[in-house]
Amino acid sequence: MQMKEYKPLIVAFCCNWCSYAGADLAGNNRLNYPAEVKIIRVPCSCRVNPMFILRAFQRGADGVIICGCHPGDCHYTSGNYYTRRRMATLFSMLDYLGIEKERTRVEWVSAAEGAKFAATMNDFVKTVASLGENKRLEDLRCKR
């Protein structure tokens, strides 16, 4: 029997004003990035609660990336500055608990950076794929 090729599932939280538009631009420009990236649109990167990230892992994500406007460009002025502090501390805590730090990432992608969006996703998927399945924050009840 042939093993199904392993494809990581990535959840990307993208803020409505920059990164989501960036993803759109990547599509319009026909830039490739893996279909395993599932985008969830949020009003601002700071809408992402630590619970969202844990939930994503629970429901089967192998990696979670948060994309927002570049610092200083947040539609709500300071949302992404809070995101930055929150995620720095949260990711550090995940690392402290022994959960692979490469599975989480924050990236600033503007609406004009379609290419950056695609490149970021390609790179992130590659990194996560090399780590394999998320075992340390999995919930067997949610396995497909």
Binding site: Y81, R84, A88, F91, D95, K101, V106
Partner: peptide, 20 residues
Amino acid sequence: APLVDYTVNDVEPGEVFDRG
């Protein structure tokens, strides 16, 4: 409290790991 505050030059989450 530090998590309801910020400065424009805070460390990036990625840098935190490099330092680690």
